[in-house]
Write a protein that binds this DNA or RNA. Sequence first.
RNA 1: UGACCGAUGGUGUAAUGGUAACACUACGGUUUUUGGUGCCGUCUUUCUAGGUUCGAAUCCUAGUCGGUCAACCA
Length: 556
Amino acid sequence: MTEEKEKSLNFIEEIVTEDLKAGKNGGKIVTRFPPEPNGYLHIGHAKSICLNFGLADKFGGETNLRFDDTNPVTEETEYVDSIRADVRWLGFEWENEFYTSDYFDNLYEFAIQLIKKGLAYVDDSSAEEIANLKGSPTQPGSDSPFRNRSIEENLDLFQRMHAGEFPDGAKVLRAKIDMANPNMHLRDPLMYRIKHAHHHRTGDKWCIYPMYDFAHGQSDSIESITHSICTLEFDVHRPLYDWYIEKLEIFPSHQYEFARLNLSHTVMSKRKLLQLVQEGIVNGWDDPRMPTISALRRRGFTPSAIRNFCERIGVAKRDNLIDVGLLEFCIREDLNKTADRVMAVLDPLKVVITNYPEGQVEEMHVENNPEDKESGSRIVPFSREIFIEKEDFMEVAPKKFFRLGPGLMVRLKGAYIIKCDDFVKDENGEITEIHCSYIPESRSGSDTSGINVKGTIHWVSAAHAEKAEIRLYDRLLIVEDSSSVGNDFKKFINPESLIVIRDVLVEPSLKEADLGTNYQFIRKGYFCLDKDSTPDALVFNRTVTLKDTWAKEMKK
RNA sequence: UGACCGAUGGUGUAAUGGUAACACUACGGUUUUUGGUGCCGUCUUUCUAGGUUCGAAUCCUAGUCGGUCAACCA
């Protein structure tokens, strides 16, 4: 019985389904992911990546990775490399790797064609003059004095622009459409500008570069992209996208727009992210507080959790603000099933088990993951002196406190039940040490004591523990919707977005921790080794906390 | 004061003229050697006003609210 429930399609999948049914494009579907290599990919890009590659996967098509590199002054190879790595890490493989700059010759030829058709002209106006004549959304623009040059003159001028005869900004090539069109993008948009700049791929071959609008649709067309998917703000560009394709009489790619991802408690714009990096508010693009793919990776997120998140948030056209809690849910859901459990004590309190023989060490076999029976077990040494969390002991315990306090009993995870007999305070009234006795018959796995305890706590053996540094990460901003505070977002950085704890005590097995392996520190959250870690100085990042209903209860 | 896009629980997303549902959140219960996980349950929804129709979240009209558009950026 393969009774799979028909999952409803998003509106783009519906369009594709209909196109396929109608036999459009010979039953083929080709998409593309077109980042500009001027920054790092973030979770919003992941949504687009999952959409584009997912569509091709689902309908038997192909997806190209195309670097939209038409602006030589902002684009760099460093970004190309990081983007490639991020897309692969997310689990996608592209059919072709292309660059808009691959098409500079074609684009130049397209421009000549439009000039010859009397649909493009060279304008000597300055940027300011062009802006002034453009009008405003509510006010029609007016024609440039250069609008009616002859085809011959335009051809000559454009070729001389190409040949490098003019300085930057002296002239532009514009499409001749309609200066009074209610759509600003149709008011004789710029096609080419002069930039005597070195390009990361074409070097110094060109001194004129095409604008986005004159490059994107034609690049789609050259690659026979059937469904060109972009975000909502390009909706107003679509008439122009179609205009170029129509006038050039080339393969009719079509553009479809969806609402970009907005995530709560963070910023997503490249400009703002760059600001955080440049002003040292975070420690680079992969600072685990950033919403970039590289940061999420470093923080311990998995590709499948991110893909799952992108699936859950859906695809539609209305503006949205996704609660980062959903992303946290997705990573917990994944890691719960896959991450091995280990023990680490973040805020240690010494426990002496007074009736346990001095010098004795027992090797406890502790299961790695109760959710995965295949995961086996590991050995954790137990001895007379151990450390537990300070917060797991209270001198005066409230009624439902299932942990340690005078006379109270708990199970030490994977070991014995202990009972608190006494505790030691220093001159400040601070509890420095507690004394317990253990129940020898209660050893985990062979418990004949018949004692039932409510609480189980984690611990590490004092003589065997490793020291580590732990970095606790939390949401970047204290405001939900960063768009509500605009450029003031830096005033809302969460002061607790990063808390470093040194001298954390972790169980000895973590000495062998690998980069890229996720762990659950029992009762504390999911962690992974950070790249700053060395064999002598372990560093772990907290990916996300565990759900903590007790903490919630205490807040009431 | 123009053009375009949008509006379904707290947050997202479905329902494609025929019983408004799914996930997350919140809250309760249960299980548990993680106050984790699992399982069960509860709360909460069609922007407004007209119209078409036997029947409207869905179609039409108007309004309201939100977003986008005036870079030689993409």
